[in-house]
């Protein structure tokens, strides 16, 4: 019984991890079709901001929920103004530019903080479930991932701003005719995506080694999740994360972590073969 319980928690926390990695990218790529190869480095900057703030004596939660998103939002704003805004609609150029940006950010952080690993311990300790114990912080991640998904969906569906954002993504010209400036909307969306990536990075920081190259370990999974999600970016990201997280964890338990990764990639290939436009191009098309 306790084993099944711990298994379920593990599956859900793997799903939450994928959601956290992908949701910032989902907003940028899914909504604006901006392929941001520097997504992993946005996460990295969020993680560094949180670690440095905590080391400077700041409260962990304040550093995670306020400082890191703000810092990465600022980075996102600069990047949008300097690079991205010139490249909307030019996918190949955006890829190249953001790839260069990724190398630049890794290099800059390496020069400032050195090519070493830092990090902070996870707060909150652990809880016991029968013979097993589980990190309490895992539960925080699960709650945060769910909260982010719900907040994004509610924002887009229920608020006026969300409506305008969706309209600008569907047809920028008509939105402009109606008196809204698409450029500002794009910029705001990119900054929000960056802020959420920063938050994800800060949330992941206590679980892993924080180093200049850490983003590379995350970016592929984030892209796979978002591309498989299809047109309904928010709902699709959640759904695809649920599928991949379950497959990955189940196979890892039965076999090894290597096969877990292989199973995840294999299911992504099968999914894209059967549904080339992503999961939500076929099902739940009305979702967000």
């Amino acid at each position: 019984m306790d084993y099944i319980c711990i298994l379920i928690i593990q599956v859900i926390s793997s799903i939450a991890m994928l959601v956290l990695l992908a949701i910032g990218l989902a907003i940028m790529f899914g909504m604006m079709k901006v392929i941001n190869f520097a997504h992993g480095e946005f996460i990295m900057v969020g993680a560094y901001t949180s670690v440095m703030s905590v080391n400077a004596g700041l409260n962990f939660w304040l550093a995670t929920f306020v400082v890191a998103p703000l810092a990465v939002a600022f980075v996102g704003f600069i990047v949008e103004r300097v690079i991205i805004r010139h490249l909307y609609g030019r996918i190949i150029e955006t890829m190249l530019a953001t790839w260069g940006l990724s190398l630049f950010m890794i290099g800059t952080v390496t020069i400032v903080f050195g090519n070493t690993v830092t990090g902070i311990s996870a707060p909150l300790g652990s809880i016991s479930i029968g013979r097993f114990s589980n990190s309490t912080y895992d539960l925080v991640l699960i709650v945060m991932a769910a909260a982010l998904l719900v907040a994004c969906a509610l924002f887009l569906r229920r608020t006026n701003l969300g409506l305008i954002a969706r309209a600008a993504m569907q047809n920028a010209d008509i939105t402009a005719v109606l008196g809204h400036e698409p450029k500002k909307i794009y910029c705001a969306t990119f900054v929000v995506g960056a802020a959420i990536s920063g938050l994800s990075g800060a949330l992941i920081a206590p679980l892993t080694g924080v180093s200049p190259g850490m983003g590379l370990a995350f970016v592929a999974k984030a892209f796979i999740t978002v591309i498989c999600a299809g047109p309904a970016v928010i709902f699709g990201t959640g759904l695809v994360a649920a599928v991949f997280g379950t497959v990955n964890t189940a196979v890892t338990f039965v076999a090894t972590p290597v096969f877990g990764e292989v199973a995840l990639l294999l299911s992504a290939i099968i999914l894209l073969r059967v549904m080339p436009k992503g999961l939500t191009a076929r099902i739940m098309r009305k979702a967000l």
Binding site: S121, A122, R131, N134, S135, L207, M214
Partner: peptide, 29 residues
């Protein structure tokens, strides 16, 4: 945890694997 060995030999390499020691402690092991 389900195998419950007396100890684990951890011969891990590189910055990503630092996470093992973090997650080991945070899950109360």
């Amino acid at each position: 945890q389900s195998i419950q060995p007396d100890f684990v030999m951890a011969d891990l390499v590189g910055s990503n694997h630092i996470g093992f020691f973090r997650q080991w402690v945070s899950s109360g092991m």
